Amino acid sequence: MKHYLIGGAAIAAIAGAAFFTLAPYNIAASVPHFPLVGEVLHQYLRNAVTVRASRIEVPAQVDLSDPALIRLGAGHFATSCQMCHGAPGIERNPVVEHMRPAPPPLDGDDYEPEEFWWIARHGFKYTGMPSWVAERDDEPWAMAAFLSHYNDFDRTTYEEAAFGEAGAYSSDAISFTDGIPNTCTRCHGEDGMGRGGAAPIVSGQSEGYLIAALMAYGNGQRQSGFMQPLAKPLEPIERARVAEGMAGGGAEWNGIPLPFGDAERGRDLANRGSEHEDIAACSSCHEGHGENGLYPERSDVPRIAGQHGYFLYNWLMMYRDGPVPTTERAHLMAAAAKPLSDEDIADLAAYYSSVR
């Protein structure tokens, strides 16, 4: 019996080596899979997503029906996903139809929101579907929000959500208008006010801070699946043009408040900190300058008073839990965020987003 086992193992090893060396299975994308191979692989993919997404919970700050979050997801989809998957009323590029597997046209009923998040965050091996560019768990929820409502859109409403107006679709990756790329305005708005919470307010931030931020996103010192792909190709003169255009905008910030958190307690933390909890006062760095005193003294520090609460909450979580930027002064913010509890972060975001 032992000899039969040894002989069988030897035959299997030889057959395996022959299969590996001679490569009889044709891997050409021009040739279909054998019957049922594609179906089996696809079902395994579905099972893998379902199992892993079953442990995912929607975070407290995420409202999947929030129009601003859906717009943010639509804008990123237009930049990064539309070429392969098409979009509502927009066909896939013919090139991708000859991939194997071909990226499918999407259907908002195919997956649950947590599953859409998992797919956007982690991608798929052997398919060309990438994982999220940055090690950020917060950002893919915008994709989950948009994809969960995918079937609600036609071409007109999709263009309005993704580009700001109907008929605005363009295949250009970056197209400058008055110094600002349309890939900036589709999320931040032409006025830099964030399109009603779809993106952070950048209008009126200092030009120096905006240039430094774009440079940090471009070289990977700051992580963001939204910003890194757009900032990396920008030349210094283009970054300067974007920063100049956004910095010259209006300064009346009316951020959308965080829907939870104690703004009054946040005010106290922001202005006085907590010696007992080793929490520094945010206002010592982020306020004190300008006519209304809501701008920081240093030009390389951003204004946060009046910013949208959703982004304030996510940024504080990021500085506390990572990935922490590796820019020159980021360690100071990381040290300030380290002692903050979830409640502290919610209260600070609730306060600063309510400042007018």
Rank of each mutant, 00 (worst) to 15 (best):
R272S: 12
F146C: 06
M333L: 10
F176D: 05
Q223A: 15
C282R: 05
A240H: 10
R356K: 15
A212H: 04
D110R: 15
G225M: 02
T177R: 15
R92Q: 15
I180S: 03
E160L: 08
T327A: 11
Y44L: 03
I14F: 14
G273W: 01
Q43I: 03
S170G: 10
A10S: 13
E159P: 12
E291N: 13
G248S: 15
A23F: 00
Y313Q: 11
L41P: 04
A330S: 15
E244Y: 08
G309N: 11
H85V: 00
R92D: 02
H149K: 13
E97R: 14
D152Y: 03
N47E: 01
R329G: 05
S206E: 08
L64W: 10
P59N: 12
H85D: 02
P32C: 09
T326W: 06
G128A: 08
D152N: 14
Y351A: 02
E112M: 11
N182P: 00
G38M: 07
D268F: 01
D107M: 07
P296K: 13
N314S: 10
K232F: 01
Y319K: 03
P302L: 05
D172H: 12
C282M: 12
D342V: 09
L106S: 02
V37C: 10
F153E: 02
M215K: 15
G266P: 05
D300C: 03
I14R: 06
C184V: 13
A17Y: 09
D268S: 09
H289W: 13
H188G: 02
D278S: 14
W253H: 09
A334L: 05
S274A: 05
L210G: 04
H308F: 09
R222T: 02
G225D: 01
E39Y: 14
R92G: 07
A337K: 06
T185M: 09
Q61W: 08
C187L: 01
R195F: 01
G108H: 06
D110F: 14
E159A: 11
I256M: 11
I211S: 03
A142S: 15
G220H: 08
P94N: 14
M215I: 10
A9E: 00
V96S: 07
M318P: 06
A335P: 00
S80Q: 15
G309M: 07
P104S: 12
A247W: 06
E165W: 11
G261L: 00
F176P: 03
R92E: 03
G261R: 04
L348Q: 07
Q205E: 14
T156L: 08
Q221M: 11
